[in-house]
Write a protein that binds this DNA or RNA. Structure first.
Lengths: 142, 142
DNA sequence: ATTTAACTGGATAAATTTATCCAGATATCG
DNA sequence: CGATATCTGGATAAATTTATCCAGTTAAAT
């Protein structure tokens, strides 16, 4: 339902919001969020281009969140790498007229809207506690 | 967000629920729902294996909905071809413990749950009026 | 029986997404 | 300045999804 890329982007952003605010290296983020490093690089790049994170090169460099986690939503992150696709026009080849969709696509778009709203209402800050199950019950018996 | 395959399956089922209950040929459904015929064949096949439609071969054959549209939901159709993926275990490689997800995945799964519920509550019957925008405002100026 | 209509399903190709490799640019440290 | 760490980004490969082709089977009509 959500692309792998979006999942990775969210993990990266949550990782950045967790712990120290120093620039974190892509390598570091990759390990903590269990994302293949080279792929993560691309994702971080997209996030940087979208103005969500900033990357600093050279020794001591890394990535930082541009805005505080309380001001960043899941929706913004997802949309930066793999936008939620609302259904705005009839997906059939038909010439359509504005916002009026048939019942099927109206329903499907309503579902998308629901997701969009849920994501828009969720800040990254609200996701930082025990970010990736470490220590929580999700990680017992490791 | 929803795969093309699921979209096609829904169009097919809605088409079947619309108009005459005679078996409708795949060709016929393909035209009406604007889905490439050969791909639609596969999709109808999946739906048949899932017990949602039944296909009859030979002259005069075609596809029929097995159950009445009032007893078939969007969720059932979607799950037949491309199941909604709930997040049941931590997507990171971590050994996890049962139903406890970290905040991020808890939120993401909540969104999936919302979609699942919305789809589960929507019958195909409720989607049949002016199924594909024909005649409705969605199709003006064609 | 023959013809014709229609589903079934295997093989394959095109497109997209995901993943990997690695050279180049840039910044810091000594 | 030289060495090292790190992001940037192009090229390419692997995997998955979507699409196409077409031969085979089944059933009805004549």
């Amino acid at each position: 339902m959500l692309s792998q890329t979006a999942e990775y982007a969210l993990r990266a952003v949550v990782t950045l919001a967790t712990g120290r605010p120093d620039p974190r290296t892509a390598q570091d983020i990759a390990v903590e969020s269990r994302v293949p490093l080279d792929y993560l690089s691309k994702v971080l790049n997209s996030l940087a281009r979208a103005g969500i994170v900033s990357g600093q090169r050279g020794r001591g460099g890394g990535f930082q969140s541009v805005r505080p986690p309380a001001e960043l939503t899941v929706l913004q992150v997802v949309n930066a790498v793999d936008p939620i696709q609302r259904i705005r026009t009839c997906p059939l080849g038909l010439k359509q007229h504005g916002e009026h969709l048939c019942p099927l696509h109206r329903k499907l778009d309503d579902a998308m809207l629901g997701v969009e709203e849920a994501f828009g209402a969720t800040t990254i800050e609200s996701l930082v506690g025990k970010s990736f199950c470490e220590g929580s019950r999700c990680d017992v018996a490791a």
